[in-house]
Simulated scan of single mutants.
Amino acid sequence: MTYSIHRYQALAHLTPREEAALRALAQTETHRRRAETFQREGDKHTGFHLHIKGWIASSITLRSGKRLIQKVHLPGDMLGTPSMALPTAADTLSCITQSVTAFVPYTRFRDLYRSEPRLAALFTMAVQVERITLMDTLAAVGHATARERLCRVLA
């Protein structure tokens, strides 16, 4: 699999065994069409996705019925991780461009904690870094003009 592991390498030096385990974590790559939605908010789910190629948007439905794009994901991101603690998907994942993802069943992720505990801890840290980034974005957007919010999305 061609999943970018640069985020994990930024957190710690990975051993060759850890790199191999990370690259083997997901199932077969799935090629997705532009505008394809492959996870819907409220759907049952059994895992998350590794983002390999393209641009993918994560969005939620507001009480008004409008959609709010929370993040534009780039290769190397983990998609759907906010749903890990929930019985249904917390967000909708839609392709902005042609994209490639690879599905990781929760059972396979659980096994990573047994076989490669340090790598599993790094994975958990990477998820938390994404969460902190989202919190920072929400704080900035809450007090920003429309132009500043657009610049934040594009940054």
Rank of each mutant, 00 (worst) to 15 (best):
Y8W: 15
E18T: 06
T61N: 09
T30D: 03
R7M: 03
R17V: 01
L22Q: 09
R108T: 12
R17I: 00
I132A: 08
L22P: 05
A146V: 15
Y113C: 10
R67N: 04
I96G: 07
A57N: 10
G142E: 03
R40L: 14
R32D: 01
F123I: 12
H51V: 01
A155M: 09
L11I: 08
L68P: 08
L86R: 15
A121F: 00
A120Y: 00
I52L: 11
F123E: 03
T46V: 07
Y3H: 13
M1A: 11
L122T: 02
Q9S: 12
R40V: 10
H49D: 03
T107M: 00
Q128F: 00
Q98V: 03
T137I: 07
S115C: 00
T92K: 10
C151S: 15
F103V: 01
R40F: 13
I60S: 09
E36W: 05
R114C: 01
M84F: 12
A120G: 04
L119Y: 05
R67S: 08
V127N: 07
I96C: 06
Q70L: 14
V104E: 03
E36I: 02
P82H: 05
R118M: 00
A102Q: 03
G47Q: 04
T137P: 02
S83K: 04
Q98I: 02
F109W: 09
L74F: 12
V104K: 03
R40Y: 12
G80S: 07
R114M: 02
L112C: 05
R149Q: 14
M84H: 03
D136A: 10
V104A: 03
A121P: 00
A140G: 05
E148C: 07
H13L: 15
L138G: 01
R63E: 14
R17H: 05
A144V: 06
T101A: 09
Y106D: 04
T133E: 13
T30W: 03
A139V: 10
R7S: 10
L112P: 00
Q128G: 09
L150H: 08
A35N: 15
G54V: 04
A21M: 08
A126L: 10
R34N: 09
H31I: 14
L68Q: 08
G80D: 06
D77P: 03
L25M: 07
W55R: 15
P117W: 07
A121E: 04
V72Y: 02
R152Q: 13
V72S: 04
R108K: 13
R110F: 02
R40H: 15
D136Q: 13
R23Y: 05
E116H: 15
R17E: 10
F123G: 05
H45K: 08
I96T: 08
A26T: 07
T133C: 09
I56F: 06
A126W: 00
A10D: 14
P87T: 06
E116P: 02
E19T: 07
G54F: 04
T124A: 14
G76H: 06
V141I: 08
T28F: 02
T124K: 00
Y106C: 11
H73Q: 06
E130T: 00
A126C: 03
M125E: 12
L112W: 01
T107G: 04
S115T: 11
D91A: 10
E148Y: 01
V127L: 13
C151T: 14
L11R: 11
P16K: 04
A140E: 12
H49M: 11
D43T: 06
